[in-house]
Each structure stands twice: as structure tokens, then as C-alpha cells.
């Protein structure tokens, strides 16, 4: 089954400094029929005004992954971590048994656009931790590049869940296949551009697809495309 959710289908929230689209129930958006996809619990597409952001707040028992698309994200927490993340980097925070942090746009002029995702960890009560990893942006045009995985590696952030986040980029007309393992879920998010999926579905910018029981996936770019694909239990 391929469940396509268009950008316009997602819940939209805005304030004077924040514009956000929620893929799953979050805050004021409370749909008991849309609370997650496997261990994936949150995907917020946030645009944050320069120097604005989220003041001190707690998290627990959640793996929080942030991918910055434009601008830069400044993080500080009660563990003493301070980090600034931009495109080409991944921020991973293990909330575990409790962490307090802030998240702000670090730019004086540029809007911060980030994808923030929360995943239920495979174990509760973990020791809180924080990591910034850097992936090879130039490699995105060649393959599905893992940027987050359970095992971690050089350039791959380590997450406490049996899952992998991949990024790739396609030139117009270029194709790339992905073979999912049987029994796994696949979540696809069209970050930029557009592409056809298995020749039958077109995913445009910020559309998503939640895929189960389909293992052979073939993408062909209609326009230059940047795609995030997540392999999930």
C-alpha cells in the first residue's frame, strides 16, 4: 500500500515567527487516526524567523532528528551541549530519561527551514545524548546516502531504533531504485522538486508517501529532486 499525503493535506500552524506543517498529530493537531508510522511519531516542516525559536523545554524517551534545509539551527541543553547545524549536517538528540533544551534560528537574516522528526526509541530510559554528524553532500547525486542509522558510522548519526534515514538527489529525468526489505515500512518525503514513484504516482515538493508491503520502489525525477527516504520497522 502506498498512502500519499500531499503538502496541502498536512496540518498547518503559524505564528508571528513560526510556520509549520505537521505530518502527524502534534500540539493543536490531534487526530487519533494519524499519530505515527511505525516508530515515527513526528515530522514537522518548520520555518523559523531569524533569531527566533523554541525556549527551554523538556523531552523524554524520544529520538529527535533535525535536518536543516536553509539557515542554521542553534541548540543548547542542560548537559552543556551547544551546537549549530546547517545543511550537510544532521542533529540527533536522544532525550532518554530527560533533557531540557532550546532551539533557535542562528541567523540574523535568513529564515531557518528544518525538518524535525521524532522517533520512539527501542528502549525507554536511555542516557540523554546529543550529536552532530556531517554527510557528503556531493554524494547525494550518486546514491541513497545513509545519514542516520542504528549502527552509526562516519558521517552517519547513530539512532536508538532499527531504522535508517537516506537522502538522495536526482537530476531531471534521472532514475533511482530502492529495494525495501519485506516486512519493513518506507516513508518518503519529497524535500525539493518532483518525481514519479513506480511510474504511477507523482510526488511534488513536500508531498510524502507512507509505504507498506511494497518492496520495489523506483523514482524518476520530473524536476530536479531531493528526496528523503526512511526505512522503518
Amino acid at each position: 500500500m502506498i498512502d500519499v499525503r500531499r503538502k496541502s493535506d498536512r496540518f498547518y500552524a503559524e505564528s508571528d515567527w513560526l510556520q509549520s506543517r505537521f505530518s502527524f498529530s502534534f500540539g493543536p493537531y490531534n487526530d487519533p487516526n494519524n499519530t505515527g508510522f511505525g516508530p515515527m511519531r513526528v515530522l514537522n516542516d518548520d520555518s523559523i524567523a531569524p533569531k527566533r525559536g523554541f525556549g527551554a523545554h523538556p523531552h523524554s524517551d524520544m529520538e529527535v532528528v533535525s535536518i536543516v534545509l536553509t539557515g542554521s539551527l542553534r541548540h543548547q541543553d542542560n548537559l552543556g551541549n551547544v551546537g549549530v547545524t546547517s545543511w550537510g549536517q544532521i542533529q540527533r538528540m536522544t532525550a532518554g530519561n530527560g533533557i531540557i533544551h532550546t532551539e533557535y534560528s542562528d541567523s540574523d537574516s535568513e529564515t531557518l527551514n528544518l525538518l524535525q522528526m521524532w522517533f520512539v526509541p527501542d528502549q525507554a530510559g536511555l542516557e540523554p545524548s546529543y550529536e552532530i554528524s556531517a554527510f557528503d553532500v556531493d554524494a547525494l547525486g550518486q546514491a541513497w546516502v545513509p545519514v542516520v542509522s542504528k549502527t552509526g558510522a562516519a558521517g552517519v548519526a547513530k539512532i536508538h531504533q532499527d531504522m535508517t534515514i537516506y537522502l538522495t538527489e536526482l537530476a531531471a529525468g534521472e532514475a533511482r531504485d530502492y529495494d525495501a526489505l519485506p516486512g519493513r515500512r518506507t516513508f518518503v518525503f519529497m524535500i525539493h522538486g518532483s518525481a514519479s514513484l513506480n511510474g504511477e504516482i507523482q510526488l511534488d515538493e513536500r508531498d510524502e508517501a507512507r509505504i507498506e508491503d511494497v518492496t520495489d520502489l523506483s523514482f524518476r525525477a520530473v524536476q530536479p529532486a531531493r528526496i528523503m527516504l526512511i526505512d522503518l520497522p
Binding site: G55, A56, Q76, D77, N78, I100, H101, T102, Y104
Partner: peptide, 8 residues
């Protein structure tokens, strides 16, 4: 924690 913490 307090409002304004971790914002230096």
C-alpha cells in the same frame, strides 16, 4: 529550569 535558560 527557568525561562531564559540555555539561551546564551
Amino acid at each position: 529550569y527557568h525561562p531564559g535558560d540555555f539561551e546564551s
